[in-house]
């Protein structure tokens, strides 16, 4: 089964455990400034939102790359950057409508979420299940179930 990162912002408390897990996996240190997933705090609304690459099928970054450094990992569906091919031209960072691929000034390459090769650390580290790793074909299943439950209540009342 192919899986997908599933993010439910309402469950997020803004603790940044995901950013620590991500950066430790990718760079060997707890370093939120190097995390591929970012949690945004909307202070006045009292809301938090984790955000990362959704691994588009027809990925803008992939199509924009002039040296074909971005390819699809067929096992996970992740769009993966080849460090050896990437020339750091940043065209992909302009092409991506979501801002989830970014230049890393130390390596001179771009970095993005690669789903940790199929076992994403952010989902494992999230203490509130705001980030989960679920069936890629059924990311709507929980919401569907909740709606079904609601409709059931309507049936029972009639």
């Amino acid at each position: 089964m192919q899986r997908s990162l599933h993010i439910e912002p309402l469950k997020c408390t803004g603790c940044l455990q995901c950013e620590m897990a991500c950066s430790y996996h990718a760079e060997g240190a707890f370093n939120p400034s190097r995390s591929r997933i970012k949690v945004f705090t909307f202070h006045e609304a009292g809301r938090f939102a984790p955000y990362t690459c959704t691994q588009c099928d027809e990925a803008w970054c992939m199509h924009a790359c002039p040296v074909e450094a971005i390819t699809t990992d067929l096992d996970t569906g992740a769009k993966v950057v080849s460090e050896s091919k990437c020339v750091g031209c940043k065209v992909c960072t302009i092409a991506c409508p979501f801002g989830t691929i970014n230049f890393h000034h130390v390596s001179g390459k771009v970095v993005k979420c690669d789903l940790c090769g199929g076992d994403p650390e952010c989902a494992k580290a999230c203490p509130t299940d705001a980030i989960t790793w679920i069936d890629a074909d059924w990311t709507g299943l929980e919401r569907m179930r909740a709606s079904a439950e609601k409709s059931l209540a309507g049936v029972a009342a009639s």
């Binding site: 408390t13 603790c15 009292g46 203490p127």
Partner: peptide, 19 residues
């Protein structure tokens, strides 16, 4: 109460965010 909130790295998240 609008939501609870965590400080850095906290898996308890006792913070109160109010309106």
């Amino acid at each position: 109460l609008t939501t609870n909130a965590a400080c850095f790295g906290c898996t308890i998240a006792c913070g109160r965010i109010s309106t």
